[in-house]
């Protein structure tokens, strides 16, 4: 009965985001000590593990703006029992999606071809570079998402509350001060 509970395995990533949500995650400050008692990290900017293995929880920051984002998101969905969209960009495309009313080809030409000083090489064609999608998409339009933590970024408190609820087996719920979209 008293055997130590196995640690919850968590993976995190940032797609088309600014890492602000990850920074906010670190803002839980001293709760970090409690957290490491409860969880262990798989793929995450915090561990530098390159590919996600089977996990309990995946936290996704950022929307989907390029082919690589698609692959990473799919990898997370395949491996994480619970997948959470963290922050405005993951939930609705956020700032990167503000390009959605622009034509992508025109945009690329404007930057790499027409503009003085950048025009010499044309649009980059290195296969190492992920290709851009015509529109930036919220992640729930590509894979099934189990939970959303809103905010730009969500506060550390909100992320902490959400995770501790989840780990404790409670349906996560944010209190009013933790609910914000900006």
């Amino acid at each position: 009965m008293n055997a130590p509970r196995p640690k919850v395995r968590i993976a995190t990533t940032s797609l088309a985001g600014c890492f602000g949500c990850h920074m906010s995650f670190l803002d839980i400050d001293e709760h970090l000590f409690e957290l490491v008692e409860l969880v262990e990290f798989d793929r995450s900017p915090l561990t530098d593990i390159k590919h996600c293995g089977p996990c309990d929880i995946g936290l996704i920051e950022g929307g989907v703006c390029n082919a690589e984002n698609v692959h990473v998101l799919r990898e997370f969905r395949r491996n994480c029992k619970t997948l959470i969209a963290v922050g405005a960009c993951a939930i609705n495309g956020g700032l990167p999606a503000q390009r959605n009313h622009l034509d992508l080809e025109a945009c690329l030409r404007e930057v790499y071809v027409s503009r003085d000083g950048l025009g010499e090489g044309g649009v980059p064609n290195d296969p190492e570079l992920p290709l851009l999608l015509d529109k930036v998409r919220p992640i729930h339009e590509l894979v099934r998402i189990d939970y959303f933590i809103p905010g730009c970024p969500p506060s550390g408190e909100a992320i902490w509350k959400f995770l501790t609820d989840l780990i404790a087996g409670r349906t996560p719920r944010l209190s009013y001060p933790m609910m914000h979209f900006d």
Binding site: G93, H140, E141, F148, I149, P150, Y176, M179, H180, F181
Partner: peptide
């Protein structure tokens, strides 16, 4: 609109975006 979404605990989205012009 935002305040009602907070009050009714609309944390995320369900439908695909229209992204209208």
């Amino acid at each position: 609109l935002q305040a009602l979404a907070y009050d009714l605990e609309m944390t995320g989205e369900r439908f695909a975006h229209f992204f209208p012009e």
